[in-house]
Amino acid sequence: APTVIKFSHVVAENTPKGRAANAFADIVNTFMGDEVRVEVYPNSQLYNDNKVLEAMLLGDVQMAAPSLSKFERYTKKLQVFDLPFLFRDIDAVDRFIASPAGQGLLASMERKGIVGLGYLHNGMKQLSASRPLRVPADANGLKFRIMSSDVIAAQFEAVRATPLKKPFSEVFTLLQTKAIDGQENTWSNIYSKKFYEVQPYITESNHGYLGYMVVTSKEFWNGLPEATRAKLKKALDIAIEYGNQVARVKAGTDRAAIARSGRSEIIQLTDEQRAQWVEAMKPVWKKFEREIGEDLIEAALRANEG
């Protein structure tokens, strides 16, 4: 019987990640179906992002793609992706990922039994709020919903805002009733979760990167024959390439759809305003420099000079 790979993720099937996972399953099931079968479980059907890695280590899930911030308990190095204003744009992220430093990070959790197979994009993050955010002082005293991440918490504290952790399913209502003032997310999430309908202002800050790492367990991966591993890696690379393409296109179309809806004003930062934000948030780099490693931050910065 073919080896079964359960691929568990938490988003819908029509999202870039969902489509990449399905593409991976299609390729594998078509071309190596007698050897390996991939079953995709979307929408947190099996596990949420917190528990999926534990289930993977127990051998009950073979592949998953949690967001990079979720790896904080396994390695501090991946926090480099959360640092604000480190990457100028998504191309810089691509160059960093392709660099030896970026590829090296795939192996950063091997000691905990997790092997990275590749990176999937969601996109660059924007800031949305109930008030226009043009300069860092505008965020002063506002409450922002964040994912669990020390770096992102520090990022909002750097502009004297209050980061709060809230379950994703209630974020819409909390924003709607103004119990929280704002949040940060990519264009595609702001669009699909309808945050733009309840947040009158979105600042096109591109201040951070939201992405995922496709991971598997070391035990499972090393148990596969060398040739199978190579073929799977190839299939995944194609699926990732496709998913990332979808993500890029989607960022553009979703941004346009939000602009067209007229429900929130998209604020462009002038160079001078942007510099203020960078200035205010840059101390966060220093704060996490020791945990992440200076060399990694250097490498990321070099990727900006493509």
Partner: peptide
């Protein structure tokens, strides 16, 4: 949160 505009990240 409502009274003082702040909160603990670990409380949830």
């Amino acid at each position: 949160r409502f009274g003082f505009g702040t909160g603990w990240l670990w409380s949830q």
